[in-house]
């Protein structure tokens, strides 16, 4: 028996979608990220942010197939070695940290961790109302990405610049 769910690209919502045995619908979204282009001042293509969520706020019982399905989507994403991925957890710091740790756990259990590198950065920023917010970020890229050194430099620069004068 397959250890994950079948997913498909839903053209009506522009999301990768799968349904679980408990009747929950998950959407995986890739959005084009221009942060690296903005920071470096040059066009850096194939950088995406991944957003994963259920269509409802209802709590779902633990289902191991969910992470396996997401793993399959991410693995397929990295079939194109030029692709790179940003994952961000923000909002309530406790929940953000927990989600960040769950994502890390998925990565460490995945079959692609030998070929896909993951770097984490916790970035502290001040919001409009002067509150301090922590962004738990992860950046993933294929080890054969032809520009991985440039990407790592840019990603590292984010934390380096923002950590000054905080």
């Amino acid at each position: 028996m397959q250890n994950r769910y079948n997913y498909f690209f839903d053209n009506s919502t522009s999301t990768y979608t799968f349904a679980t045995k408990n009747g929950f619908l998950y959407r995986v979204v890739f959005i084009i990220d221009e942060t690296f282009s903005t920071i470096s001042g040059e066009e850096i293509p194939y950088v995406f942010q991944i957003v994963i969520d259920k269509t409802t706020d209802e709590l779902e019982p633990y289902d191991a197939k969910v992470s396996k399905t997401i793993e399959a989507i991410v693995e397929r994403f990295f079939c194109k070695v030029e692709n790179s991925l940003i994952y961000v957890c923000s909002g309530d710091n406790t929940k953000a940290k927990q989600r960040h740790q769950i994502f890390d756990r998925w990565y460490k259990k995945s079959e692609y961790q030998d070929i896909v590198m993951k770097i984490d950065n916790i970035i502290t920023i001040a919001t409009n109302n002067k509150n301090i917010q922590k962004l738990y970020t992860s950046f993933m890229f294929h080890k054969n990405n032809p520009v991985y050194e440039k990407l790592m430099t840019i990603y590292g620069r984010i934390e380096e610049v923002l950590s000054k004068d905080i």
Partner: peptide, 16 residues
């Protein structure tokens, strides 16, 4: 730094 901050904040707001 201001522009980097703006770019990073956008990542978070885009996600939400």
């Amino acid at each position: 730094k201001k522009n980097i901050l703006k770019a990073v904040a956008k990542i978070a707001t885009d996600k939400e």
